[in-house]
Every structure is written in structure tokens, then in C-alpha cells.
Design a protein around this nucleic acid. Structure first.
Length: 203
DNA sequence: TAAAAGATATACT
DNA sequence: GTATATCTTTTAA
């Protein structure tokens, strides 16, 4: 993945990351996941962003240059991964919410549970990280080729399949249409939203 | 120094 | 569908 493609506002990059492949290599092996769902966090202008109140030790990575990984712990249990976008000095990141395992499914299932169905291996931010093997150790990691975590372009997805909807799981600015996902993909998470709660989202 | 809130996932009713 | 586990970061006194 060319860093130039990431050096744009999060809401600009988020849809372009759909179909991209995030790969994580650990001593256990490599797991690659094609991204099917993302969410844009615009930084200081976004009330729901960790960077809204300015730079802090935790979110410092988001203010850095594009092409890095911002990993944080949610509710004490789960890891959530973001790809830093935009310009150095301006907070901007794309949360990776879900994806489809395309390599290392055995390892992913081993981490998530033997009886987890394929479509659920990386559905939801926390599960995505667990399947991929991303932890807090990867916070701030560079996504350059050869690194333990890398981002590559993967197969391009038809623009017609890209859907936009309200963000999930945030208590602020949930009206912002900053969630991007692939229509009809079984790996897309829509949990906590009843199917008929967003009638116009798929239209 | 102390308290509250948080970009969730899972189990149970 | 609702309730709960669990801990880090941030903010207020």
C-alpha cells in the first residue's frame, strides 16, 4: 500500500481501504484479512474520536504520519486497530471494523475458537484484532512491507458495492455517515442494530 | 489522588 | 434484547 493513498482525510481513505488486505505475522504464523468494513474518525473535529480533545499519550499515533497502526484497548478486554491517515500533525484514522480471512484461517480460528464460523472470525473490531493477532504491542507500528503488520491493496472492490451508514457503538456523532462497508458481505458486522433499524442504509 | 467513561463481545433471560 | 465482565486513559479536585 502506497503511503500516498493514505495521506488523505479519514473519510476519504476509509472507503478505499475496503478490499485492502491487512496481514499480521507472528511467531505462530501469518494471518491475512481482506477488509470489508471501516469507520472514519476525523480527529479533532470529530466528537467521537479519541483525538477530539487534543493530543494525549494514547492517541499520539493518530497525530503522526499516515501508514501507522493505532491500537487501543476497549473496555479493558478488546483491542481495536486503526490505520492512521492524513498528514503528520493532524489526527485522522480509520477504524478497521471487520474483514474476511483469506490466509491463515486455521490460526485465526485457533485464536478465536475452534467452532467459530468463517464469517465471524473477524467480525467486529475486537474480533478482527484477535483473529489477526494484533495487540497493544503493535500500537504505533509501521505498515511498511516486511513489518510484522502490513497493509496491501488486495483486490479492488466495485464502487457500486460500497455502502455508507452511521457509525456503530459510539455515543456521540452517530449521525455521521462515516461507516463504510461492502454490501451483502457476510463478514460485515451490524450487531447491536436490528436489521430493520436501518432500512435506508442498504437502499 | 480519585472517579467516570469508553470506537466491545458474550452470556443469559 | 438486556445485562455484565473488565481495565486503561483522561479529567476533575
Amino acid at each position: 500500500m502506497n503511503v500516498d493513498l493514505l495521506a488523505h482525510p479519514a473519510e476519504d481513505v476509509a472507503p478505499r481501504l475496503l478490499g485492502s488486505v491487512l496481514a499480521c505475522t507472528t511467531p505462530e504464523g501469518t494471518v491475512s484479512i481482506a477488509i470489508t468494513e471501516t469507520e472514519a474518525y476525523s480527529g479533532t473535529a470529530d466528537p467521537a474520536s479519541h483525538a477530539y480533545r487534543g493530543r494525549t499519550p494514547r492517541n499520539a499515533v493518530m497525530f503522526g504520519p499516515a501508514g501507522h497502526l493505532y491500537v487501543y484497548r476497549s473496555h479493558g478486554l478488546h483491542w481495536c486497530a486503526n490505520v492512521v491517515t492524513g498528514t503528520d500533525g493532524i489526527a485522522s484514522a480509520v477504524l478497521i471494523r471487520a474483514g474476511r480471512v483469506i490466509e491463515g484461517e486455521d490460526l485465526a480460528r485457533k485464536r478465536r475458537g475452534e467452532r467459530v464460523e468463517s464469517a465471524r472470525l473477524a467480525r467486529g473490531p475486537g474480533n478482527f484484532c484477535q483473529a489477526l493477532g494484533i495487540t497493544g504491542e503493535h500500537n504505533g507500528a509501521d505498515l511498511l512491507p516486511g513489518a510484522s503488520v502490513t497493509l496491501s491493496e488486495g483486490e479492488p472492490v466495485p464502487t457500486a458495492l460500497i455502502r455508507i451508514g452511521p457509525r456503530v457503538g459510539v455515543s456521540k456523532a452517530h449521525d455521521w455517515q462515516h461507516r463504510f462497508y461492502l454490501a451483502g458481505d457476510p463478514t460485515v458486522s451490524a450487531y447491536r442494530l436490528s436489521p430493520r433499524a436501518r432500512p435506508s442504509a442498504g437502499a
